[in-house]
């Protein structure tokens, strides 16, 4: 059990590192949102599961945190993506933009 827990903890740490690195190195806002959200969500899952395997009596509490993160993190990133689109428009290299006619045209200021 301890081995499983420690492996999961290291995996979680690695994905948090990947999230930070992704936010640092991706080229535009939407790619940063994608990298940050995916990597930190899986990192949080792995790390919390590792803690749960180490102390099995905490498993329900850990499960509640996992469910909350699984629901709230993608919603937050969707809200941020929509807000970024409204604030600075699409990046210059898009090939198709269906969102423009829905949200209305904003001039490219970003």
């Amino acid at each position: 059990m301890e081995i499983v827990s420690q492996v999961l903890l290291v995996i979680g740490g690695l994905f948090f590192l990947l999230g930070g690195l992704g936010v640092l190195r991706m080229p535009d806002v939407f790619n940063r949102i994608q990298a940050g959200t995916k990597a930190t969500t899986l990192g949080a899952f792995a790390l919390l599961l590792g803690i749960g395997f180490m102390y099995p009596t905490w498993f329900l509490k850990v499960g509640i945190i996992i469910v909350f993160i699984a629901i709230s993190n993608p919603i937050g990133s969707s809200v941020l993506a929509k807000a970024s689109y409204k604030a600075q428009g699409a990046p210059s290299n898009v090939v198709q933009d269906d969102l423009k006619e829905f949200l209305g045209g904003t001039e490219d200021v970003g």
């Binding site: 948090f16 806002v29 940063r32 940050g36 937050g76 990133s77 941020l80 807000a83």
Partner: peptide, 15 residues
Amino acid sequence: TVADRVVTLDTFNVI
């Protein structure tokens, strides 16, 4: 931009 900073703050919060 401000959007970059807010996005990063979200990632930072999860970490």
